[in-house]
């Protein structure tokens, strides 16, 4: 709950407020991107990371529903493994400055990095021609939710014996499901617009320079 100068907001009110803030962030970033020069891939990566961090923090009222997994996957598809690992690690660290930093930050970074690398490795399979395949990205992002959550669950081995891990993972299955379904929703809504932005600034894009005609 958010305490705003003696006004205590309910969880639903907090969620509505946070969604409004996220919409403002998304709109301002979209406008900022449209004024960027083509090929500003690092700036776009920074915008993606910032949107992922903001989304994760503001969507905290929804259990395990956040856009980071899908964004890291898309970064892997468009910009490759190395940059997706960078974004994954950055997002985990910065968002945990708000949500709580600890040993789990390493495992979260590792989990998202693995998803980014998977996106990079499967980038050709996740496209139909040059168009991103939303159903394929959605399917992979659903699976990625479980992969990420189970990687993070490994961190509990610092506290419990290995034989208890299956029970620990079983207890988390409803949250894994929420993460997976949330990812499908983010993939359905974000894959195409974010792919368009990232491909517009992709360092891999093909630039054809035609001779400049003289006006005189």
């Amino acid at each position: 709950m958010l305490d705003a100068h003696a006004i205590v907001l309910s969880p639903l009110e907090t969620l509505v407020l946070n969604l409004s803030l996220l919409a403002i962030v998304a709109w301002s970033m979209w406008k900022a991107e449209s004024s960027l020069d083509s090929g500003s891939s690092l700036t776009v990566l920074a915008l993606m990371a910032l949107f992922a961090v903001t989304g994760r923090v503001l969507l905290e009222p929804l259990p395990n529903v956040q856009p980071v997994t899908v964004i890291v996957l898309l970064v892997g598809i468009h910009y490759g493994a190395t940059k997706s690992i960078g974004v994954a690690t950055l997002v985990a660290i910065v968002s945990n400055l708000v949500l709580g930093h600890g040993l789990w930050t390493f495992y979260q970074a590792l989990g998202w990095a693995l998803i980014g690398v998977t996106g990079a490795l499967l980038s050709q399979s996740l496209r139909i021609g040059e168009k991103i395949s939303v159903p394929r990205v959605a399917t992979l992002s659903f699976i990625a939710a479980f992969l990420f959550d189970w990687v993070v669950s490994i961190s509990v081995l610092h506290s419990i014996p290995l034989e208890s891990l299956p029970v620990y993972i079983m207890v988390g299955l409803p949250f894994d499901l929420a993460h997976g379904v949330g990812n499908v929703a983010f993939a359905a809504w974000l894959s195409e617009p974010l792919s368009e932005i990232m491909s517009r600034h992709s360092p891999k894009r093909e630039v054809v320079v035609a001779p400049v005609k003289s006006s005189t």
């Binding site: 359905a188 195409e192 894009r205 054809v208 035609a210 005609k213």
Partner: peptide
Amino acid sequence: MCQVKVPVFVGADSVSYKLRLGSIVLLV
């Protein structure tokens, strides 16, 4: 003239629209 050839990610097709609507309902 400078031409830039960029991969085109066109707008959502009917499958994507169904997925968008269905995923929100499922999430709720």
